[in-house]
């Protein structure tokens, strides 16, 4: 992975600064009030401002120790954080659920970062995506198939055996034992 002359502190500082400014701006839309009668915007604005100032301080501090590098993947992972929130927030505004799209974008970013990061998160995202429609049986299989890619050693047969074992265990603990209302079978198969 190509390395950039950029210290992790620059990224951390920028992330905090960005978050701080974002929080401050969004909180400005809520009634702020005054100290004696704090509105819902008062405390968040305070925190947003604080966050931005600390972010600036971290940035300033990072200038004093040059020479450290980060790899490009980390930069990508970093930049997907604000993208995720923007998409999620933007779609919420227009009355659509943006979480699927935001997730897809996030995973696209992660694909460039590291194998473990991508496949672990992809497995969980697939689980979230499939559970309602396809039930625990298929969602857990998808999770397993994605997760095994994070570490190449696990063979096919091992994956399937592990899936069966874990499926039975989770059915026993959650569905039969605790009565968690988990969808078990795909919706297209009548129970």
């Amino acid at each position: 992975m190509q390395r950039l002359r950029l210290s992790p502190d620059v990224l951390a500082g920028a992330l905090f600064l960005l978050a701080g400014v974002g929080v401050f701006t969004v909180a400005g839309q809520y009634p702020v009030g005054d100290a004696a009668r704090m509105g819902p915007g008062y405390f968040p604005r305070l925190l947003g401002g604080l966050l931005a100032v600390i972010g600036l301080a971290v940035l300033a501090g990072s200038l004093r120790k040059p020479g450290t590098t980060v790899d490009r993947g980390l930069l990508l992972a970093w930049s997907s954080v604000p993208v995720f929130w923007t998409v999620l927030a933007g779609f919420g505004r227009v009355g659509l659920s943006g979480i699927d799209l935001a997730l897809a974008l996030l995973l696209a970013f992660c694909g460039f970062v590291s194998r473990a990061l991508f496949w672990v998160l992809a497995g969980v995202a697939l689980f979230a995506l499939l559970l309602d429609a396809c039930g625990l049986v298929l969602a857990s299989l998808a999770l397993m198939l994605a997760a095994r890619r994070a570490e190449p050693e696990l063979a096919w047969r091992g994956t399937l055996a592990l899936w069966l074992l874990l499926l039975l265990a989770s059915l026993a603990i959650f569905v039969w034992g605790l009565g968690t209302p988990l969808p078990v079978w795909p919706r297209f198969i009548p129970a």
Binding site: D132, S140, T159, L162, L166, L182
Partner: peptide, 28 residues
């Protein structure tokens, strides 16, 4: 071990509100 941990984490998060939104948010 880790696929097992992942699966139990997912089910655990889901069963908070029986909502996959929480699982998706956990990805973030």
């Amino acid at each position: 071990l880790y696929p097992a941990i992942l699966l139990f984490c997912c089910i655990g998060v889901y069963s908070l509100n029986n909502n996959v939104f929480d699982v998706a948010l956990a990805v973030f």
